[in-house]
């Protein structure tokens, strides 16, 4: 009797353990797994957001399909990383020469509170003319970041101001809106420019 009870408990215990393991697998590796952070951005055709460019045009991911596209996130009150990214990109575009005009290059702000359409217009005016600045309501910026799997966070600074932590990678899409690759912050020009050329060539392949 006692032995039978023990077996029963043992079986129940094994069952619970098995179930726990199964639930664990389901949640972590199985079909119930959450989408991993830092995964690939969606294709542009699967994104949905409405923003305003620095010339007050209503824009969204649909406007980018048809030409190869380069997108990055930042904010104009950023003293170091953002102007560096923008001047790096301006340098890559200069090296591409005429090919640069066949691309969409979009800077999306993660700080719409300070980066109004006027602020974006003034800021992007200092960099390569192909670069467009997009801003809009906070919820639309959040949807855009979600589509690109980019993240951002507002961080207070000691002077009562705030700064923004944000994804500094540059996203490259082909003319069909599929992700080609990403350029990490500070990637040397020798690597960045060939990656951009790849996005431009995939456009040619897609067209034929």
């Amino acid at each position: 009797m006692q032995r039978r009870q023990l077996l029963l408990y043992g079986a129940a215990g094994a069952g619970v353990l098995g179930l726990t393991l199964f639930v664990g697998w389901w949640r972590v590796d199985g079909p119930g797994a959450p989408e991993p952070k830092g995964q690939r951005p969606l294709p542009l055709s699967a994104m949905e957001f409405r923003l305003t460019d620095h010339e007050e045009n209503e824009v969204g991911p649909g406007n980018l399909i048809g030409r190869p596209t380069m997108v990055f996130f930042g904010f104009t009150y950023c003293p170091d990383v953002c102007p560096t990214t923008l001047s790096d990109i301006s340098g890559w575009l200069e090296e591409l020469g005429d090919e640069a005009s066949e691309m969409n290059v979009v800077f999306i702000t993660v700080d719409p509170e300070r980066d109004t359409v006027e602020a974006m217009a003034e800021y992007v005016g200092y960099f390569h003319p192909v670069i467009r600045g997009w801003t809009g309501p906070e919820d639309q910026i959040a949807r855009a970041a979600e589509g690109f799997r980019a993240s951002y966070e507002r961080v207070p600074t000691e002077g009562g101001d705030y700064t923004m932590n944000h994804t500094a990678s540059v996203f490259l899409f082909d003319a069909k809106g599929e992700l080609v690759t990403m350029i990490d912050y500070h990637e040397p020009r020798e690597f960045a420019v060939p990656k951009i050329r790849r996005a431009l060539t995939e456009d040619v392949e897609g067209a034929t």
Binding site: K37, G38, D80, V81, S151, V155, G159, T163, N165, H166, T167, A168, S169, M182, D184, Y185, H186
Partner: peptide, 18 residues
């Protein structure tokens, strides 16, 4: 009025902070 040495860092997820 507030000059200070800061450091920018970019983590493995590509997120920059200062």
């Amino acid at each position: 009025m507030m000059p200070e040495i800061h450091e920018s860092k970019t983590n493995s997820d590509g997120v920059s902070s200062m």
